[in-house]
């Protein structure tokens, strides 16, 4: 354990030389490489950060655009829904109106058909009734009915006011006017005189009606003076009855 000053000085110098050598061959180049790598890493991190920020920006823009599109889509959807609702309401209203019109038309049609059907039934019923009445009256027709109808005609003439027979009076006013009383069966004398008296009263002058028979009358009388006629017999009554129903009376 001895201290050698020359060795001490040389070792101190050696160490300082070593520091310089290591600094030149070791520290500087390795630190330079490390710094370069760190710089590249920092640059990559910076680039990555820039890319990330760009991606974030794009993401934000995309999100905003998506939101805007969603809003536009929602608005368009709302408009479409409103239009659909309006169109639906309009079509429903039109359909309801059409249905109501159709219903009314059908009701009218049905009412008319029902009326026509009822009228047809009525006519058919009346035709049947007429046939039945005609057949019944045919069987009932006879001198008694004929007499009764003659009496009925006389009572009718007597009950009516004279003004209702102005046409007859105008016809009989002519000097050559003639009046015929046609019956299904021959009238007895009293009835003939009653008809003559009644017609004289209506004409306001003396008349001598001509009496004749027509079996087609079945029963009753048919009085004819020119164009004026008085029908009080089964044939004309049935005919009138039938024609009246055919005309809807």
């Amino acid at each position: 354990m001895e201290l050698d000053w020359s060795t001490l000085a040389l070792e101190a110098l050696n160490f300082l030389v070593l520091v310089w050598l290591l600094r030149h061959f070791f520290y500087r180049p390795v630190l330079a490489v490390i710094e370069k790598r760190q710089a590249e890493t920092a640059k990559q991190i910076h680039d990555a950060e820039a890319v990330r920020q760009e991606a974030e920006t794009l993401k934000s823009e995309y999100t905003a655009r998506l939101t805007k599109q969603d809003e536009a889509h929602a608005a368009a959807q709302a408009r479409l829904d409103a239009e659909i609702a309006a169109e639906r309401g309009r079509r429903l209203t039109a359909l309801a109106t059409e249905i109501e019109t159709e219903r009314r038309r059908r009701e009218t049609l049905e009412a008319r058909e029902r009326g026509e059907h009822e009228a047809a039934l009525e006519r058919q019923a009346l035709v049947l009734a007429t046939r039945f009445a005609a057949r019944l009256l045919d069987r009932l027709a006879g001198p008694e009915v004929d007499a009764k109808l003659a009496d009925l005609a006389l009572a009718e003439i007597a009950a009516q006011a004279p003004e209702k027979f102005d046409g007859l009076r105008d016809t009989l006013r002519a000097a050559d006017a003639s009046i015929k009383v046609i019956s299904a069966y021959p009238l007895d004398e009293p009835r003939r005189q009653a008809f003559a008296a009644a017609l004289t009263r209506l004409a306001g002058r003396s008349l001598a009606p001509g009496f004749s028979e027509d079996a087609t009358l079945k029963a009753g009388v048919y009085i004819m003076a020119g164009s004026w006629v008085l029908m009080a017999n089964l044939r004309d009554e049935l005919g009138f009855f039938a024609s009246g129903f055919e005309h809807g009376d």
Partner: peptide
Amino acid sequence: PLSIGATVLTTWLVMALLT
């Protein structure tokens, strides 16, 4: 006056190896 002994020589060897 400088003595270059084993210690200095070994130091140079170490320096050479490290360098």
